[in-house]
Amino acid sequence: MSDIPDTTPKAGTPEPGPASAPGLGRRRALMLAPLGLAVAGGAGFYAMLRGMGTGTYDPRGVPSALVGRAAPPFALPPLEAAGLPAFANTDLAALPGPVLVNFWASWCVPCIIEHPQLMQLSREGVKVLGINYKDKPADAATFLTRHGNPFARLGRDEPGRVAIDWGVYGVPETYLLDRGGIIRWRWAGPVTPEVLEQDIRPLLKRHA
């Protein structure tokens, strides 16, 4: 028994207790770090999914290179069956107030989804100008007879070259031009009621 020494700490040996408190705090912080990261990641994903649900965030969305620039020069033939005038870039500068330029096709399903919103805008007096992309004239005319015609002017871009000059990568795409003919906004995808209310209406007001 006598060979068991007393266990009281001696001077010079590291003392456990208050001295190691900062080390313990650091360990706790390190243990909490993954949890914090997971919370931040979760919040980020939630915001993304919410945005995708309401249509305010599109992960495939790409900003247009033409925003802030004038429309590229073009002169497209009319769709005779629709009885609308042809459409050239020189028409844009002549129009008063902001206008919408909509690329669409009769074979494009989202175009059917957005059509009521275009009709509504045109009824309210907003100038909606159409460019019919890679379509057959007869099909385009049938589409307008069935769903209504919101366009003030309509050009046919059957080869799709004018669309490439605008940086279009799929129909429908909608551009908003101010009264000076400068492109201010581009939406790739259907103009849903949400897009109409949250984006187009404020923009029309701002550029009126």
Binding site: P63, A65, G167
Partner: peptide
């Protein structure tokens, strides 16, 4: 092409 479609 870059002029029309941007950096992407």
């Amino acid at each position: 092409v870059h002029d029309r479609y941007g950096d992407f």
